[in-house]
Simulated assay, not measured.
Amino acid sequence: MIYTHEDKRNKELSADCGNCFGLCCVALYFSASEGFPTNKDAGKPCINLQSNFTCSVHKNLRDKGLKGCTAYDCFGAGQKVAQVTCGGHDWRQAPESAKQMFEAFLIMRQLHEMLWYLTQAFILQTDHGIKEEISSLLYNTEHLTLLDVDSLLALDVVDHRAKVNILLKNTSELVRTKARSRKNTPSRNRNANSRRLDYFGTDLRKTNLKGADLRGACLIAANLRGVDLSGADLIGADLRDADLSGANLTNSIFLTQAQLNTAKGDSLTKLPMMLVRPTYWSK
């Protein structure tokens, strides 16, 4: 069975704050040192969350230095828990079930993140047999997002993620191998295809990153201006304050909106079709 509803799924995996109950502003732990308003315990509402579940400073988050807020992305988990799992009953209306709702949100966010990656893997994968495996896991994962609260909380997310990671790694190797084998890659450039995790503040403008394995890499404040990241696997990479001005990310893989929101870029930065240019990037 082949999964064929990428467009519908990508819409469902985008945050719809109007149909949520400010779950990310309540369920999550906040640290002021990471760009949030103040230190906040999980389960406690943010000081800027209003009674209608909107943010009182939403339009000025960047001006106030709240980078953590602008970077966060729930992958659509918020509205799924609010409207499907909890049937439209918010945590203020049903305070006795608030703790369950917050815990369900944390699990749902992980499942929706997996759906995001699996959807891209399905599109990229050319091996028919593996494509069917991805399709099956997509359907299975979506089914899990429709579980009732008790079943969702009992779910072994770690085990499910392990199954997902096998297929993501397989697809990553396929895409990266093709990217590295393409002609016209300047041989004079340093090559970063070997596994490395720490690029903190590194100038990578003369490094060949086509098809690079950057899974979980620290790219904080790295200089990637004008770098071609075609086929590079960026799953879990930390791009905080990385300079992507003029970089080519069109065919990079497993990049998320949240990662882009933490980086710097400009009008010349080329992005994958499903991602949008942050409004605060330079022109």
Rank of each mutant, 00 (worst) to 15 (best):
C20L: 05
F30C: 00
L23T: 11
D63S: 07
F21P: 15
N19C: 07
G43T: 01
S56M: 04
L28M: 07
F36P: 01
D16M: 10
N52T: 10
N48H: 12
S56Q: 02
C17K: 04
S14C: 13
L13Q: 02
S33D: 07
K8I: 14
K8P: 08
A32L: 14
V57C: 08
I47G: 00
S51A: 09
L23K: 03
F53P: 06
L28Y: 04
S33P: 08
C25A: 00
R62V: 07
G43E: 13
N10V: 08
K44P: 01
C20K: 05
N10P: 06
N39F: 13
F30N: 00
F53Q: 03
H58E: 09
G18S: 09
D63Y: 09
F36E: 06
N19T: 06
T54R: 14
S51Q: 10
V57Y: 08
A32E: 15
H58I: 07
N48Y: 13
N39W: 03
G35A: 02
K40P: 01
C20W: 10
E34P: 10
D63A: 02
L28V: 01
S31H: 08
L61P: 14
P37Y: 09
R62G: 05
D63P: 01
K11A: 12
N10G: 09
T38P: 14
K11V: 15
I47P: 09
I47S: 07
N39G: 00
K59Q: 12
G35W: 01
K11L: 13
F53V: 05
A27P: 05
C24V: 12
R62A: 13
N60L: 10
Q50L: 12
L49F: 06
D16E: 09
N60P: 05
A42P: 10
D41S: 09
L13P: 02
N60G: 11
G35C: 03
C20F: 06
L23I: 08
A32R: 15
F21Y: 09
C17I: 02
P37S: 10
G35Q: 02
T54E: 06
N39E: 14
C25N: 00
P37E: 01
A15Q: 10
C55H: 05
L61W: 11
C55W: 01
N60H: 11
E34K: 15
L49Q: 07
S31G: 13
C25R: 03
R9H: 02
A15M: 02
K40E: 06
R9T: 11
G43Y: 02
E12N: 13
C25Y: 07
K44A: 13
G22R: 03
K44L: 12
L28A: 02
R9N: 11
L23G: 00
D7S: 15
K8D: 15
E12S: 12
S14Q: 15
